[in-house]
Computed example of a mutant assay.
Amino acid sequence: MEKLEYPIVAAVRDVNHMKEAIESRVEVIFLMSGDIFTIEECVAATRKYQKKIFLHIDLIKGIANDKEGLRYIAKRIKPDGIVSTKNQLIHAAKKEGLLTIHQVFLIDTQAYETAIKNVLDTKPDMVEIMPGLMPRIIRQLSQAAGCPIVAAGLIKTQEEIAQALDAGAYAVAIGERQLWTLVL
């Protein structure tokens, strides 16, 4: 993915906040809620503002977390890509021509080592690491994974955003709506 001019991603946890995300200065939205009835409208609204939207496929209700559900998303809903923790969905999304973000939770050394193994297997377009408050790990994982890193989770201040970006994060995904319009 090309470099973002504004490296904050709106992590939308409630579809009722989509309008605010779309009208903010973010270039990318991670939709982390919704269902089969609302996601199509959310994607269409995002298109009108020339923003990219990734559906967190593990969290969308009414869509099976399998190849067929993913094919439906790719052919009918047409987001830019998906976010998932599941290797098989990352592989399936790539086959459907969607951009992929492999989300990993780094709670200890074993989780970190498993994440590297999974990322090397799936070869996603990006990796989202949680929590995002780990500059050393952001640096290490971006070198090991060979793809851009999105830092997310527990980030609450402009200083924490700056630390993640300084450590080499491609972007920072934030659910706190007031941070979607920060001047960096």
Rank of each mutant, 00 (worst) to 15 (best):
M1W: 02
E2H: 09
K3T: 02
K3L: 06
L4P: 15
L4D: 12
Y6K: 14
P7R: 01
A11H: 08
V12D: 05
D14W: 03
D14G: 12
H17K: 14
H17R: 12
M18K: 06
M18I: 12
K19T: 07
A21M: 09
A21I: 02
I22M: 01
R25E: 15
V26M: 00
V26L: 00
V26W: 03
I29K: 10
I29V: 13
M32K: 01
G34Q: 03
F37A: 08
F37E: 13
I39F: 11
E40W: 09
C42P: 03
V43W: 04
R47G: 03
R47K: 13
R47S: 00
K48M: 08
Y49M: 10
Y49R: 10
Q50K: 13
Q50H: 10
K52H: 08
L55E: 02
H56F: 10
D58Q: 04
D58M: 08
L59H: 13
I60H: 12
I60M: 09
G62L: 14
G62A: 12
A64N: 13
A64G: 13
A64S: 11
N65G: 11
K67I: 02
K67C: 08
L70Y: 09
L70S: 09
Y72P: 04
Y72G: 02
A74F: 06
R76I: 01
I77S: 13
K78G: 10
P79Q: 14
D80C: 10
D80L: 06
I82T: 00
I82V: 02
T85C: 09
T85D: 13
N87K: 13
N87Q: 05
I90C: 04
I90S: 03
A92K: 02
K94A: 00
K95F: 01
L98Q: 10
L99N: 03
L99V: 02
L99D: 05
I101T: 06
I101F: 06
I101D: 03
Q103R: 15
L106W: 07
L106F: 11
D108S: 00
D108W: 01
Y112K: 14
Y112M: 14
E113L: 15
T114A: 13
A115S: 12
A115Q: 03
I116Y: 15
N118G: 10
L120C: 07
K123G: 01
D125F: 00
M126F: 07
V127F: 12
E128W: 03
M134H: 05
P135C: 00
P135N: 01
I137F: 09
I138C: 00
I138P: 00
R139K: 14
Q140A: 10
L141P: 02
L141R: 05
L141S: 12
A144C: 15
A145P: 06
P148N: 11
I149V: 04
A151D: 13
A152M: 15
L154H: 15
E159K: 07
E160I: 07
E160R: 04
E160N: 06
E160A: 13
E160H: 03
Q163G: 00
Q163Y: 00
A164V: 02
A169H: 12
A171M: 06
A171P: 09
V172E: 10
A173V: 08
I174Q: 09
E176T: 15
R177C: 05
L179N: 07
W180P: 06
W180Q: 11
L182C: 05
L182P: 00
L184T: 04
